[in-house]
């Protein structure tokens, strides 16, 4: 079909102008993180002004660019501590959290979307409810359960379990909402063709829900990737620490090494960006008109 671009699609140039400006503003604080990381120093950014500053002096002061560029912070972060090992631990924990979280959430989300059963509303609500109780007081009860009862201190499994359950409620709700938008007729026709419920779920529903699965995967990953206090509390061996724990060594207490922290933060966000790059194609490949018509 031929489309008249002039009337239906917005003009691209203004969009680009807007996006460039907005993106620059949005990454401005991030640029400061880069500036601190590459400065070779340790102090948090403070505008350095000469006496009686002019417009240009002020402009220079607010431009995030280090006076000298140095990689020393990155080098120190990677060599002073077993940071690579900690990133690896984080990767394993976050990846397993993603797999487990997405698995548990897709099945539950599917049931909540497709079946009507007693306790359905209550069940769905209870997932939401679990997010409502503030986590600050949960540390000791969780410690008792994971380390005391289950004996999972200093293990990956303990952390994965906790992170996955933290991520589940949002994932279930998100997926349930998305499953709701997938037309029932698709399943009906498959059922007529003799497909089992499990087959329908895996072959039809999951592929169609790719954007939502991508979102939940990213979310679960982030849950496991950035958590600090539980990881620091459950792990009793330095080799088992995760990257956020390693990062926090640079701050807290009397002195703060912001240069190291910034460099570490950048290293730590690289996998997240990579994952997002990988998930992007699923994020923008949803239902097509053809699929609905079946």
């Amino acid at each position: 079909m031929k489309r008249s671009k002039i009337t239906d699609e917005p003009e691209h140039l203004p969009l680009h102008v807007f996006l460039v400006i907005f993106t620059l503003l949005a990454i401005y604080p991030v640029l400061w993180v880069f500036t601190i990381a590459f400065s070779g120093g340790q102090s948090l950014a403070i505008a350095d002004l000469p006496s009686d500053p002019t417009f240009l002096d002020r402009l220079r002061a607010i431009l995030p660019w280090p006076e000298q560029v140095s990689l020393s912070n990155f080098k120190s972060v990677m060599t002073d501590q077993p940071f690579a090992r900690w990133i690896l631990n984080s990767a394993v924990v976050a990846a397993a959290t993603t797999v487990l979280g997405v698995f548990l959430a897709t099945t539950a989300g599917y049931a909540f979307s497709r079946f009507r059963f007693p306790g359905q509303r209550a069940g769905l609500m209870s997932f939401l409810v679990s997010q409502m109780f503030p986590g600050t007081l949960m540390l000791i009860p969780l410690y008792i359960i994971i380390v005391g009862w289950l004996g999972l201190g200093s293990t990956w499994i303990g952390l994965i379990l906790v992170y996955a359950t933290t991520a589940i409620p949002f994932c279930v709700w998100m997926l349930k909402g998305y499953f709701d938008t997938i037309p029932l007729e698709l399943e009906e026709s498959a059922r007529i063709d003799g497909a089992t419920p499990i087959q329908i779920f895996i072959r039809i529903i999951l592929p169609l829900a790719k954007p939502a699965v991508a979102v939940t995967a990213l979310f679960s990953f982030m849950t496991g990737w950035n958590e600090f206090i539980l990881a620091a509390t459950f792990m009793d061996e330095e080799v088992m620490y995760t990257a956020p724990v390693g990062l926090r060594f640079f701050v807290g207490g009397f002195s703060q090494q912001w240069g190291y922290f910034a460099a570490g933060s950048i290293i730590v966000s690289i996998p997240v960006v990579l994952l997002f790059l990988f998930l992007q194609k699923y994020l923008v490949s949803g239902l097509t008109a053809g699929a609905v018509k079946g």
Partner: peptide, 8 residues
């Protein structure tokens, strides 16, 4: 020895 981040 085990080093623990101060905040935790």
């Amino acid at each position: 020895t085990l080093a623990v981040p101060y905040d935790a």
